[in-house]
Write a protein that binds this DNA or RNA. Structure first.
Lengths: 218, 218
DNA sequence: GCCGAAACGAGAGCACTGCTCTCTCTTTCC
DNA sequence: GGAAAGAGAGAGCAGTGCTCTCGTTTCGGC
């Protein structure tokens, strides 16, 4: 069972998500193709296992990185989250692509199993913003955003997560979240071009600074 | 030939990139599977055709949106580019995924055919920043960025594109570029969750404002 | 007008995929 | 000791990309 996930991850890394083949996994395990169905109901279920596994590994990486940062160093925590995300994505590009790239055709991740681990990173980010807001370290105003329906949606999020951060900070937080994964995706998916940067990490550091700025953390 | 691309795009939209099947395209054209190889050398070549087609369509959409904006309205031009990108991505999510999502396993887009159309959008963005810089509308300093190798890489980009914008603006421009596609990808790929926002466009408008801010356009 | 060449399409076939079914063998448990 | 459960094997179905050979149609030069 754990062997299946392990071999599955190897194949994911070498072949990619859409080319992940149950038969090949079975072969690597010394099994005939039908025997694999004793343990996993379908290819989609294996994908789900890999998705959950990936989210957990990323979550663990981020959590580990956060332990080295003082909890009142809000900017430092964001930097740590961003760096850990990027580092993990570069080590596991195929799993990253599975989680944050194009959806695999014909596969819909079952929400009940994936939303939990899937929200760990953004949860950590939200924690930082909330702490920073309550510590008075955020230079964003607390005026409600327009239109009203957006403000309502943000209020619902605030209630769900028990936040005191105002509309603008929640919106900027979501922006920073999306922007972070945009930066990582561009690098992992090679949008910058092959040899444009001798050390893409240099650019990423500057991008992280822009992220910190975007949420009003001077 | 153009029929193949047309049917291919339909299949792309309904099935997704990795599930794109030459046989199915041939069937829709009333051909047997082998006959399709008269016109297209392989599945990868069809993908390349679709990639170029997609880049061109996105580029056209962005260009069309820019025509309605005064050329000295720098923020307005960025907003127009961002909105046009998002709008096109929402109309053609499968093609968007092909261009900006996870790479299709086993397929490498041939640079000589795709880099040209693939850089149209970022090219437009760069134009705006350059114009804004030369007009003195950017509130970013012109100090070189650290480390020096990053500054060198940015200088090479500046030279290639004939820019006068300083390090920080080029870096921030690249950040805004990545962030824009991060925001669009999150929406198109459903990372925000299904029914979190009654009108995701509201949030996007706010994100665009953050983009404009990020490049120092007040 | 004829004839060769090129273009076009059909069909069979190979190796691969996900998945289902039945069959056999082994282990476990009572 | 015998029943039940677990595990794997093998055949088979429908689908895929792609290659090969074969027959037909169309078109240009003489």
């Amino acid at each position: 069972m754990r062997d299946i996930v392990r071999i599955g991850r190897e194949h994911l890394a070498t072949e990619g998500a859409a080319a992940l083949s149950l038969r090949a996994v079975a072969r690597d395990l010394g099994l005939v193709s039908s025997a694999i169905y004793r343990y996993v109901a379908s290819r989609d279920e294996l994908l789900t296992l890999l998705v959950v596994d990936g989210y957990d590994e990323l979550g663990d990486a981020v959590d580990a990185a956060l332990e080295a940062v003082e909890s009142d160093d809000h900017a430092g925590r964001i930097v740590a989250i961003a760096r850990a995300t990027r580092a993990w994505a570069l080590v596991e590009p195929a799993t990253y692509a599975l989680l944050f790239g194009s959806p695999v055709p014909g596969y819909e991740a079952p929400a009940e199993q994936t939303t939990g681990p899937g929200t760990r990173v953004v949860g950590r980010l939200v924690e930082v913003w909330e702490d920073a807001w309550q510590a008075g370290a955020i230079s964003l105003d607390d005026a409600p955003l327009t239109p009203r329906r957006l403000s309502r949606d943000l209020a619902r999020i605030r209630k769900q997560m028990g936040l005191t951060a105002p509309d603008r900070l929640v919106a900027r937080g979501l922006f920073a979240w999306a922007a972070l994964f945009g930066c990582v995706s561009f690098e992992v998916f090679g949008q910058y071009g092959a040899d444009t940067f001798s050390e893409p990490g240099d650019l990423f550091e500057h991008h992280v600074a822009a992220l910190v700025e975007a949420v009003g953390l001077a």
